[in-house]
Simulated scan of single mutants.
Amino acid sequence: MTHLTSMLDTYPKDLGSIDRQKLAECIAACFECAQVCTACGDACLSEDMVAEMAKCIRTDADCADICTTTGRVLSRHTGYDANITRAILLACEVACKACAEECEQHADMHEHCRICAEACRRCETACRELAATLG
């Protein structure tokens, strides 16, 4: 997170009361989760039982898109709107929870689903904790 925290530290305007550490952790968790979900969905496509993995693949794709968008929104602060930030954090938390629950159903058979569920839970927690600091 060196570059991420460096960028936050060099921001020319005051970031307000937002917890910079939690912000940095959440941005990192979002982008990591997006990558892991994308890879998990692709791995699911390679499974012999791909038809049985359709919901997991769809959930991975949705979660990856929402996490990417959340990370991008959290990275912008000019004209910051706390209402938008709260809404996107909630959407990301919900998507990560759904994806984690779906991947956990396959975690015993597919290691990529276990890893994905862990990344989703981490991102879910980071979004919830950051949102709690917004008031």
Rank of each mutant, 00 (worst) to 15 (best):
T2A: 00
T2Y: 01
H3N: 10
L4H: 00
L4T: 00
L4G: 01
T5K: 02
M7I: 06
L8Y: 02
D14G: 03
G16P: 01
S17N: 11
I18R: 09
D19T: 07
R20E: 08
A24V: 02
A24Q: 02
E25W: 02
C26V: 07
C26G: 06
A28L: 08
A29T: 00
F31N: 02
F31R: 08
F31W: 12
E32C: 09
E32Y: 10
C33W: 00
C33H: 01
C33E: 01
Q35A: 14
Q35T: 10
C37N: 12
C37A: 14
T38C: 11
C40F: 05
G41Q: 02
A43R: 09
A43S: 15
A43F: 11
A43L: 11
C44D: 02
C44P: 01
C44G: 02
C44N: 06
L45S: 12
E47W: 03
M49P: 00
V50L: 04
A51C: 10
E52Q: 07
M53C: 10
M53H: 14
K55D: 11
C56M: 13
C56N: 09
C56D: 06
C56I: 10
I57W: 05
I57P: 03
I57S: 04
R58K: 14
T59M: 13
T59Y: 08
D60N: 13
A61P: 00
D62H: 14
A64W: 00
D65N: 11
I66L: 14
C67Y: 03
T68F: 05
R72S: 13
V73C: 09
S75H: 06
R76P: 00
R76G: 03
A82F: 12
N83F: 10
I84P: 00
I84M: 14
T85Y: 03
R86K: 15
A87W: 02
L89F: 08
L90V: 11
A91C: 05
A91N: 12
C92F: 01
E93K: 08
E93R: 15
E93L: 05
A95P: 05
C96L: 08
C96V: 02
C103D: 11
E104L: 15
Q105D: 11
Q105R: 15
Q105W: 04
H106L: 14
H106D: 06
A107Y: 03
M109C: 07
H110R: 12
E111Q: 15
H112A: 07
H112D: 05
H112V: 06
C113L: 05
R114D: 08
I115T: 13
C116Q: 00
A117N: 04
C120G: 09
R121M: 05
E124R: 13
A126T: 14
A126P: 04
A126Q: 11
C127V: 09
L130Q: 07
L130C: 12
A131R: 15
A132W: 11
T133N: 09
L134M: 14
L134Y: 08
G135F: 11
G135Q: 14
